[in-house]
Amino acid sequence: MAAAEGHEDSGSYVLHHLTNLKLDLRTLSIDPAAKGFWVLNLDSVIFSLLLGSLVLFVFLKAARAATSGKPGGLLNFIEMTLEFWERQVREVFPQANPLVVPLAITIFVWVLFMNFMDIVPVDLLPFVAGKAGVEHLRIVPSTDVNITFGLSLSVFILIIGYNVVFKGPVGFLKEVLTHPFGPWLFPVNFALRIVEEIARPVSLALRLFGNLFAGELIFVLIALLLAQLRTGIGGAVLSLVVGFLSQLAWTFFHVLVIPLQAFVFAVLTVVYLSTAATSHSEEH
């Protein structure tokens, strides 16, 4: 299954798998080497939007079937998800406003779907795309830092917003300057607070990215390793069998990571919003 495109050099094989399909927005041309901010990772964007739309499609379908009578299969499943997140939010963030549950569900299901793209055999879609003339394709959006930071920065903006809304601008400012060391050490307080606030979106984004990127990389490396075993007929058969089994084993392991990371991202979002809404001075 590996090295289908005939890359002899292992470094270039790995690198090929980790290069996005880039669209340079300044020249509007596909350029894998494009640098700078005005570049779009087309593959990440397309898969991210496709998966997000699929999530919305499923939920809207369930919403159309919504009934106070006996729920059908899909609706039942969606209701289970909704109930689960309503309970989570109630426990973590009792004074939550109506935005929190849809936010958590969107993050959880969307990230889950994006992560599950990792289960698709690493070379399958890039191979098909390569036949269609598309040189680079990364199909797991959550292995792209732009995607994970896109989510976590949105959460960051919401955290700041919740701070301001729940405490008032003055209360928020007062807390930033006086917590935790009192008003006389306000520069220290301020610096600490900045670090604390920035650490949250960075850790959110990098945790998801790191886990999924590592998982993806292991799939690529297993494929690469087995491709190098392939010498002669016996080697081919051996690499096929061992390759299949080791990829399967890693899939079993990775399939645990996939929902866990989606869950962690969504739960931490709720926790962060909850701490943003409650005053620090009350906690101490």
Binding site: F37, L40, N41, S44, G150
Partner: peptide, 13 residues
Amino acid sequence: DINATLILQMIAF
């Protein structure tokens, strides 16, 4: 590297 994908993802989100 961080690029415009980030902005698009935030809007989509």
